[in-house]
Design a protein around this nucleic acid. Sequence first.
DNA 1: CAGTCGTGGAT
DNA 2: TATCCAAGACT
Length: 359
Amino acid sequence: MLDLAHRLAKPLGPWFLKHQRDLAWRRTRDPYSIWVSEIMLQQTRVDTVEAYYGKFLERFPDVGTLAAADESEVLAAWSGLGYYRRARLLHAGARHVAAQHGGAVPGDAETLRKIPGVGRYTAGAITSIAFDRPAALVDGNVARVLSRIQAISEPKLQDAGAAGHWTLAQKIVEAGSPRVLAQALMELGATVCTPVAPKCGECPVRSECQAHAKGLQASIPAPKQRGLSPREDLWAVAVRRGGRILLERRASEGLLAGMWCLPLIERKQERAGASPKAIAAATGVKVKAIEALAEPVKHVFTHRVWMLWPCRSEAVPSDMVNAAGDSGQVDGRLWIAPGERPRVGIPKVTEKLLAALGY
DNA sequence: CAGTCGTGGAT
DNA sequence: TATCCAAGACT
């Protein structure tokens, strides 16, 4: 009797070759391109990544180009995609590969694992998918698929860090083409063995699934609960000077680290907009004519919610020295013209605010 | 190791 | 509307 890994691998391969989605990163075997796709896909939906992947590779077609680029260019290409640390780590990773490996992406998981931004999963994915060499990989999809197949009810044993999943995943990719089987496991989780309402009728390994046999597919894996997101109310200030708007680069650590945003100021009891005093304290610019918008911009993060109250203000004439020519990036500040988007990291929340303010 | 880190789609 | 959570890595 074949063991479980072989019984799963046998139907998974043909199923994947027939039912796989046509995705841009499946049309290449270039390890760098696959690496980029894996980083973009971390915690991010396929539909979202598709809008960025091609453009990114056009701009940074190989390790050397990415390694030689300025970080701001990389963040500009990543703008709107979220989890911006990934972009920084990918950039650092390209420099690492350029310096340590002559620009050639390593073909084994152990060496890949040393690249900034490449964790256990991504190392396995690049090895299996790009090099077609067996290396275990367990992401959220694989963890869910393997948890259901084995009807694992213990939450600690269900998640992607569970040792049992890694052992089984290794055996599965060793039972045939790692390139095919690695993607087959994830594709099954993404399209059939979905978190909600799995399509067990379409599953090629239904006969091996203990959760299905016991009718437990809806309760495995167990839903994990999160704490409530704290809500923060902030003024989002458009400081206008010489027809331009002030953007500030956020702190190098924390939320939206190093990304460019409107100045944000804690909103307390005031209703008519941030006070000139608070704006001056936050930006160093004296302002007048503050005008608050009626509706806030709501921006939801994983662990908090921002209620952003946009308001416009005008720098006072005494502060208009050099206003005409001051369009460059100086000391974490940037004065942009309406519609202008400099090649720096600009998160979605900034775009939402600029749109609300009509800039 | 539990918390942090974006955004958007589905229910 | 509220909640979940998606091809995780890092601290």
